[in-house]
Design a protein around this nucleic acid. Structure first.
Lengths: 206, 206
DNA sequence: TGTCCACTATACAGATCTGTATACTTCTGC
DNA sequence: GCAGAAGTATACAGATCTGTATAGTGGACA
């Protein structure tokens, strides 16, 4: 479950760093297809030659964009989890949602970059596809591990419910249909955990 | 079944119908930006002149694509709700999720067209933007109306939780991180309703 | 017979896209 | 002093994009 931090496929020179920073901002704000390499190079204050010398293709910039954002998210999440170290799995599950809420307020005006990229990249053979599915799988595994500490029997079911609430809050935030969806998710999560943990794997209720 | 059928901004000649059918399939399967008007015209067996004579712009085709899909979804949903007519709000809420599950299995291999389009469009001044937000607002209003029949006090909170589970299942289905997310959502919804309805709007819990 | 109407066929304008080529500069380390 | 790495500047190839222009076809209907 430790992320295997594979080395960057890209030499991160100062120019490359500026390219990636510009690409992250532009891709997230306007979408991947809507942003061309000329614009990225111009915003980064770099020539296209430098851009292609470092990254080789636009696809690779997309991969680095998503992988980098995922990495920053995991670091951020780790900080929130450290803050409740020693406390039980309930507190850590709540901490995940609180981390997402803080992240969404700070970085997430346009929703989840992974969900958005998944919508733009129909083709599963795109090199960014594993980054996207890997990130979502990682989140599900995280929830599953925490759920197992609460009730090993129904852990998968609880984890999937948490995943639904989390993804739902991400997309609701992106569409903006009602305010503070993570607040709503948190309320529901606290309620589920307080009740002795929601629908388990089996055929529901007492 | 009678949806309010506001007049199309487009004369739906046989050629226009084929254009829209091809656009719906291609936009959903490959994404909006990834599909050009030349391809749409070719797949529809129509010249570009016909396409532009009918729709005027690609943007307008996108609007018709989303509005048409929304209309079909509402008709489908109406059918599922009629099947439980006379029964209580609980049964109708469950019926909504069952309708989404059936829809996703049939039309939804790539997730929710509204969520995907919202990810691709970025710009809120795009004419398709109101179609997207309108559809999500309509779903939230639907849940709110049903929730009000269960408990007027906490209706907004219950509706938002249902919305989170529903959007979460849509996006989980699109990413494919675990199988049958609507089944999981249904389980959780039945549990919430069976328990006397979950976290209410206010600062309810213990 | 004549007039719409939907449509075909084809060509092209003009912009933008990803990616490459050539030649030169600037800085660093040995 | 000099090699190599990183970058600038500029031009261009080749494809694809949205959208338009011109000319003609075939059927319905009065």
């Amino acid at each position: 479950m430790e992320s295997v931090q594979q080395p960057h496929r890209v030499r991160m020179t100062p120019g490359a760093r500026r390219v990636l920073a510009a690409a992250e901002r532009l891709f997230y704000e306007r979408g991947i297809h809507a942003v061309g390499v000329d614009l990225i190079a111009a915003e980064a204050g770099v020539t296209k030659k430098t851009l292609y010398d470092r990254f080789g293709s636009k696809e690779q910039i997309v991969v680095e964009y998503l992988a980098g954002r995922d990495e920053r998210w995991r670091e951020r999440l780790a900080g929130h989890l450290e803050a409740v170290a020693g406390r039980g799995p309930d507190a850590r599950i709540v901490a995940v949602f609180e981390a997402s809420r803080a992240w969404a307020l700070e970085y997430g005006r346009k929703g989840c970059s992974m969900i958005n990229a998944n919508a733009e990249i129909g083709d599963p053979s795109h090199p960014a596809h594993p980054v996207i599915t890997g990130q979502k799988r990682w989140m599900l595994d995280l929830f599953t591990g925490l759920a197992r500490e609460i009730e090993p029997a129904g852990a998968d079911g609880l984890a999937r419910t948490l995943m639904l609430l989390h993804e739902g809050a991400l997309v609701a935030h992106g569409v903006g249909v009602f305010p503070d969806p993570f607040g709503q998710a948190l309320e529901q999560v606290r309620h589920l955990l307080g009740n002795g943990a929601a629908a388990t794997g089996g055929a529901s209720l007492r």
